[in-house]
């Protein structure tokens, strides 16, 4: 494969064109967010905002209750009854994502340690049930989970997001696989030194588990950041909405009206930035995480 035939370069050309197609929607979002309202419905559209503005984020000439042609409420001027407005959703998403990621990793890492390194009766059966549960699509448990959360009075609450999401079968499965590669001698050495199991887990096992935890953390955090169907069902009150639900409601409220699409693009841009920045900072971990779980799983 070291010597390249000339057609190999030619064959790449359509893929370069495709790369342009890949970037076009992102570009369309960015310029949409900075186009003033009249420019959003100009025909033919502009591919560089002729008169870029922050009006879609905050429009100084917009006043509540008054209709001025060419001006709509900016993103930060919406949800006036909600303290923080748009940033409330950002905070909700950040909090829920962090809680679910840390919580589910700790629970699964603890359980994986017990299942692989400690004497547990029926561990084969437990592991088998966990494996079997991975074959069932999660939507199957959607309705009963909704009923449970409703009976607990957890609709419109953070618990409603977090608690049902903590026990993740695939995380346990992955960590058990990884834990098997940690030599038992290390654990024994800890016991000889008189450390309790919890201490061994925290001081010896967790640090060794770090690559696996990092890989899983990225998966869990991305999934939780994008979580939509579950909050759509359990969250009615805007003050508990996460970003996807808030964005979906925002787009419904401006539906079919090009004037509001600038605000929707502004919100989309701000919602995408955290994960994209996160990706560029931890790029290596992303690809490593995917291949680690991909090849092993």
């Amino acid at each position: 494969m070291s010597r390249r035939l000339p057609w190999a370069a030619i064959a790449r050309v359509p893929l370069y064109l495709l790369a342009v197609t890949m970037l076009a929607p992102f570009w369309w979002m960015v310029i949409g967010a900075f186009k003033p309202v009249p420019e959003l419905s100009r025909n033919p559209p502009s591919f560089l905002p002729a008169d870029p503005s922050f009006d879609n984020f905050h429009d100084p000439s917009w006043t509540p209750g008054k209709q001025i042609a060419g001006h709509v409420a900016g993103l930060f001027q919406r949800w006036p009854e909600l303290p923080g407005g748009y940033f409330r959703f950002m905070a909700n998403s950040l909090f829920v994502t962090t809680a679910v990621t840390i919580g589910s990793l700790l629970l699964a890492a603890m359980a994986a340690y017990a299942l692989t390194k400690l004497e547990i009766r029926g561990r084969r059966i437990i592991f088998l049930v966990v494996l079997a549960s991975m074959m069932v699509p999660w939507q199957v448990s959607l309705i009963p989970n909704y009923l449970i959360v409703r009976n607990l009075g957890w609709l419109d609450s953070y618990q409603g997001y977090i608690v049902p999401a903590l026990a993740k079968a695939f995380v346990l499965f992955f960590l058990v696989q990884y834990m098997r590669s940690i030599p038992d001698e290390l654990v024994h050495a800890g016991r000889v030194d008189g450390a309790g199991e919890f201490r061994i887990w925290w001081r010896i096992v967790l640090p060794l588990l770090r690559p696996a935890l990092a890989a899983m953390a990225i998966f869990i955090a991305l999934a939780e950041w994008n979580n939509f169907l579950w909050p759509l069902i359990i969250i009615n009150d805007d003050s508990f909405a996460n970003l996807p639900v808030a964005l979906s409601r925002l787009s419904t409220s401006v539906a079919q009206n090009p004037q509001g699409m600038g605000v929707v693009m502004a919100a989309s841009l701000l919602t995408s930035l955290p994960t994209v920045i996160f990706f560029f900072v931890f790029q290596k971990h992303f690809t490593k995480g995917i291949t680690l779980s991909g090849i092993k799983g």
């Binding site: 939509f228 979906s248 919602t271 990706f279």
Partner: peptide, 12 residues
């Protein structure tokens, strides 16, 4: 790595 909700809104 982009918010899927944002992507679908862009496509719309």
């Amino acid at each position: 790595v982009t918010s899927s909700m944002a992507l679908f809104l862009i496509w719309g």
